[in-house]
Each structure stands twice: as structure tokens, then as C-alpha cells.
Amino acid sequence: MSMLSEFKQFAVKGNVIDLAVAVVIGAAFGAIVSSLVADIIMPPIGVITGGVDFTELKLQLTQPVIENGAVVREGASINYGNFIQTIINFLIIALAIFSMVKAINSMKRKEEAAPATPTPTKEELLLTEIRDLLRDRKPL
């Protein structure tokens, strides 16, 4: 089997397609959660903390070099505010995924808990048939 046909067989399998769909949906979900954090959750937190924008928090290690009003060399800084923002994003995404998985598992448990109607055995089918024949028989 050639490498190209082997790759084609691999790529067409349902697992790869499902994975590709999951990646695209995951990226879109990440964008939604990022917007939720940046546009809805962080502004009230900024108001509570006195207008602090977490993304602007940093520890300046060296000052930028400026000549004639233009920045010649950027200053070195530790941007811990971006790190805090990323942690908050992660926690919210993890909470959202946890909630979705929990809801799906709950629905699956309810589905599994529903009693399935048992299939009759051969003996039960035969007895049912005999009963029906006796019931439908005309008296002598």
C-alpha cells in the first residue's frame, strides 16, 4: 500500500474528521470565552480593584531607550498582568468545559437508568403463541 493511499485511508476515517471538527469548535469556543472574560468579567473586576487593567500590570526591569522622541530599544519587563489574565481565562474555560461534561454525563446516566424493555425468551414467545391459539379456538 502506497503512503498516499495509506494517508488517505487514515484521513477519511471518522475519528480524524471528528477530531478536526472538535478543534474548530474548540477554537470558536475559546474565542467566545476570551470575549466573555475580556468584555464582561474583567471590567467589573477592574472597577472593584480601582480601575486596574490586569494586562497592563508589569514589573519594569530596564527602561526603554528613547532618542528624538522615538523608542530605539524597548525596556525589559515582566508582564505578570498578562499571566494573571491568562490564568483567569483558563479557569473560566475549565469551569465551562467541566459544566458541559457534567451535563452530558448527567444526561447519559438518565438515559442508561431508563429501564429497557426486556426481549422475551423463546419459551415466552412459544407460550404466548399457544395462549393466543387457545384463546382464538372455537369451542367444540
Rank of each mutant, 00 (worst) to 15 (best):
E112S: 08
E74W: 09
V47T: 13
N68A: 14
L59C: 07
D132N: 06
A103N: 12
V23A: 04
G30V: 15
L133I: 15
E74C: 04
L61R: 12
A94W: 03
I92K: 03
A28E: 11
P139S: 09
G14W: 03
F29K: 04
I48K: 07
D132M: 09
T119Y: 09
P120W: 00
E6P: 00
A28I: 14
A113E: 08
P64F: 12
I78C: 03
A38H: 01
M42Q: 02
V65T: 05
L127F: 09
K110D: 13
E67I: 01
G75F: 13
K122S: 14
F7E: 02
I45S: 04
V12F: 13
F98Q: 15
E74A: 04
F83S: 05
R137T: 10
M107H: 07
N105R: 08
A116T: 10
R109M: 11
T55D: 02
L126V: 12
G69N: 02
L134T: 04
I45G: 06
A76W: 14
A94E: 09
A116K: 00
M100G: 07
E74F: 13
A27R: 10
K110F: 06
A11D: 05
K58I: 02
G50H: 03
G30K: 01
S34M: 08
V16A: 05
V72M: 08
G50R: 02
G14C: 07
K8I: 15
F29G: 04
G14V: 02
S5C: 06
G75C: 03
R131V: 10
E124G: 01
F7L: 12
D18F: 12
R131C: 04
V65H: 11
P44F: 09
V101N: 03
T62L: 09
K8D: 01
S34D: 11
I87K: 11
L126F: 09
Q60P: 02
I92T: 05
T55Q: 02
A116E: 02
L133K: 13
F7Y: 13
S99H: 00
I93Y: 03
P64R: 00
V23K: 06
R135M: 10
E123D: 14
E111N: 07
E56Y: 08
I87V: 15
L126R: 10
R135P: 02
F10R: 03
R131I: 12
I48A: 13
R109W: 03
S35Q: 13
E6F: 15
Q63W: 10
E112D: 12
P118I: 10
A27S: 14
F90Y: 01
A96C: 13
E74Y: 11
N79A: 15
G14Q: 04
D18C: 11
I45F: 08
G81I: 05
E111P: 05
K8G: 03
R135C: 00
S35W: 06
